[in-house]
């Protein structure tokens, strides 16, 4: 894309995009670490995920400040305006994604209490993997202003929803058969729900990226949704 006549404007846009790339990377890493902590029952790693969420929150605040400054001082127009507004909305969503990862990490010690291998735990990492890849691709789509990649993210949301429905059924069955595990299973169910929400949020980011890149809103598509919940 051609440069602005006023170079400082480009510098600010670059900084904005850099912050969002960092934030996205951190959110993605938080999801992955939280899932590893869950699998390996690694308390230290879980605590680290919780602690590092503060940096994600700080980036959100920094981006908000910068966006307000750019709007006030540069009066961005057209694709610049869409970019800046998308940036503002995206950081709000990525911050929520970070919170879900943190919430997963916080549940790790509670599940560790009872060291039994629950079958659903084996499904969750793959589910987390898909969700974190969606976050990764949604933010890559923003960085590259790539509407096709954004569409691909939106389409992948059904995979996460299917995972969720499957985990939900498995856990309910497990709880019926093993009432003593209800507490742990409930935590696992929340974790699955958190991952499902991360997928939804990544989808929202992708929709914002699509609008910023094209100026058009993505046509509503018939999404699967989490049937067990709705």
């Amino acid at each position: 894309m051609a440069e602005h006549t006023i170079k400082a404007f480009d510098d600010e846009i670059d900084r904005l995009r850099g912050l969002i790339a960092e934030m996205g990377g951190r959110a993605e890493a938080a999801i992955e670490s939280a899932m590893i902590a869950l699998q390996r029952q690694d308390l230290a790693l879980a605590a680290q995920v919780v602690a590092e969420d503060k940096r994600i929150d700080a980036i959100e605040a920094e981006v908000e400040k910068l966006v307000i400054q750019v709007i006030a001082l540069r009066a961005p127009m057209a694709n610049d305006l869409r970019d800046v507004i998308a940036a503002l909305k995206i950081v709000g969503v990525v911050e929520r994604i970070g919170d879900y990862a943190k919430n997963i990490a916080k549940r790790v010690p509670l599940i560790m209490v009872n060291q039994r291998t629950l079958e659903p735990v084996s499904l969750l990492p793959s589910m987390g993997q898909v969700a974190s890849e969606m976050v990764h691709d949604a933010l890559n789509a923003f960085a590259a202003r790539d509407p096709d990649l954004a569409v691909a993210v939106v389409e992948r949301d059904t995979v996460v929803d299917d995972f969720y429905n499957s985990v939900f059924r498995t856990l309910v069955t497990y709880m019926v058969e093993n009432p003593k595990t209800i507490s742990e299973c409930a935590h696992l169910l929340f974790i699955a729900k958190n991952i499902e929400r991360i997928g939804d949020h990544a989808t929202n980011v992708a929709e914002m990226v699509y609008y910023a890149a094209t100026g058009q809103t993505l046509p509503d598509r018939d999404r699967g949704g989490a049937a067990a919940e709705e």
Partner: peptide
């Protein structure tokens, strides 16, 4: 918010 022509976009965004 969404000009259709590249020249319009470059002008109004200050490029």
């Amino acid at each position: 918010t969404n000009p259709t022509q590249e020249r319009t976009k470059d002008y109004i965004t200050g490029r």
